[in-house]
Design a binder for these strands. Structure first.
Lengths: 335, 335
DNA sequence: ATGAAAGCGCTAACAT
DNA sequence: ATGTTAGCGCTTTCAT
């Protein structure tokens, strides 16, 4: 069938012998037309290859669009990629379109993205960041649309929040490791020059150690993005500085796997000589000779829930302010 | 500063003592106003917290928006994620917004996404797929906007194409392995029930073998998405069926790494007992005890080029129809 | 350099 | 169940 971007409601109306409004009603499925009229209109819609114009619709209805803004730290990460995919799919299914951005953990980047988005008068916004610039907060307030903050749970959300506490994930892992009776722990992190959720996990981890009466024996936070090689190299730096460690907690699983590769290359045995714990529940862990002790994060569920909460709010349904999506510490064989 | 979504051109015009048109001209930076007028208008824009309305602008100008549609197979893949990130960043910098979709290698999904996009009257479209449904092609034609096909190079593009030949990547790797003098090769792939670019690489690989007078000794293409575990498991299936192989070519690096993990678990030595080659140039390879023989793909460059070509076409600049972005076979120590 | 008028394609509100 | 009227906030076009 040949689409006709030029055919408008008017053309269909004329062809079907009704008014524009009737066509509009039929197309939007609201009531106010007979079955016979509906059939006639739809057949003309088909015949003329009518292509709806959402720009005009959004404009005509005074800015009520089906556009949603979504901003995450980055796309090229298995965790965020999967969350994003889930959000996008859910929103599409619910009849919304998303405009996506990434901020790489820089609140200023989020602000720039938001300014561009705001001009499109979105019907809702999903953000994956805890820190926002004052300008961002002011813009969000002025837009007066539903906002879902996701990933790191905000118990005092701007509007609605969904996710989990990274601090708690770190704390729980810290407690778990303490039970193993080891005493000298190290930490390997990433993106030292940004404020990341990894930092919260580390804080939680340290809090648990503190409760047990010990403190982190060594820590190495690289400036790089997290990744296999960052874990490899970070471990080398850490161990060079502090060779006598019983265990290492990593920013995420890929870094932990990188770390284990370095340890293996030096003949250091896991978990005999040193215990290893990661975070995230990433796929790469599935092929390690030993199951990695980690915290599994339900990325797709978080995305789906964020999308559904936002749509609920946009439709005016009552929705919960704070939705906690639990993560799960999965003991492996590396600790 | 407090934004005011309600302030319009009219309000600024009144406050600045000029007409709406003059404000519009100042805001869009075209000519037709004095420096003094510009200053007065801008100060009112600031004072009133004016927020432009792109919906109205796109509508008023008869559909000339700054919206671009981008559809890739999936977000949660390091390769596509990085390409997408690069596209999005480039488009943002050039003053465009993108509406993203994923099709998971299903032409029908791309069609559904495109139908949703079309109603937004995008100014251009970037697609990462070689196969399209007839409906998709018809819609693309009717939209009459610039279209960039990327990833797998299309030498007879709908409009503009950028990328490289996956067949050639496979062929080149096949030739390279043939030079090693090995004779019994296996292949491990993914997404058997979809038409993927991996299939093209395999075809190229087989073509090279054929030229050398041999054929693939065994092949195992799983239905799963590519990944570490798929490579691990696929290798187990392959070797169980055909234990005497000299080399294995994989759908991508992560699968190759998964395969090496399985081989290691069975005490099969790489490259002594069996040679391994991957594809993609993925980060996980950086921590392997031996450098993986692979083909490195410049994902960010492809994304940036796709964005720039599209913007060039949208602006009416003359741009090249077909832009080849070379990949590079990097010999490692696994073959 | 500036302004006035017309209209983009819909939907909301109010008829009938 | 259907039609009529009046915009939505810009840009385009044509004056001045």
């Amino acid at each position: 069938m040949s689409r006709n971007a030029k055919a408008g409601l008017e053309d269909i109306a004329r062809a079907a012998g009704v008014s524009k409004m009737t066509v509009s009603r039929v197309l939007r499925g609201s009531s106010g037309f007979s079955e016979e009229t509906r059939a006639r209109v739809m057949s003309e819609v088909e015949r003329l290859g009518y292509l709806p114009n959402r720009i005009a619709a959004a404009f005509g209805s005074g800015g009520t669009s089906t556009l949603v803004g979504v901003c995450v730290p980055r796309f090229a990460s298995s965790l965020f990629g999967s969350t994003l995919e889930s959000i996008n799919t859910s929103l599409m299914r619910l009849g919304y379109q998303s405009m996506i951005g990434s901020h790489d953990q820089l609140p200023e980047e989020e602000e720039i993205w938001l300014k561009g988005l705001a001009s499109w008068r979105p019907a809702g916004i999903i953000l994956a960041a805890r820190r926002h610039t004052p300008e961002t907060l002011s813009l969000l307030r002025d837009l007066t649309v539903p906002i879902v903050e996701m990933w790191d749970l905000n118990t005092q959300p701007i509007d609605v929040s969904v996710g989990f506490s990274h601090f708690d994930d770190g704390y729980t892992m810290g407690r778990f490791l303490m039970l193993r009776g080891r005493r000298r722990y190290g930490y390997v992190g990433a993106m030292a020059n940004r404020v990341t959720t990894g930092r919260n996990r580390r804080d939680g981890f340290e809090a648990a150690l503190r409760e047990g009466g010990i403190s982190l024996a060594a820590s190495e936070t690289l400036e790089d993005h997290p990744g296999f090689y960052a874990g490899y190299y970070g471990t080398e730096l850490l161990i060079s500085r502090e060779p006598k460690l019983d265990g290492i907690y990593y920013h995420d699983d890929e870094m932990a796997i990188g770390g284990m590769a370095w340890l293996a290359s030096r003949g250091i045995r896991v978990p005999d000589d040193i215990g290893i714990a990661g975070w995230g529940g990433m796929e790469a862990a599935s092929i390690q000779p030993r199951r990695l002790t980690t915290t599994v994060v339900p990325t797709a569920l978080i995305g789906k829930t964020a999308a559904e909460l936002l749509v609920g709010r946009m439709r005016g349904d009552p929705v919960q302010d704070v939705t906690m999506i639990p993560t799960r510490l999965v003991p492996g064989e590396t600790v």
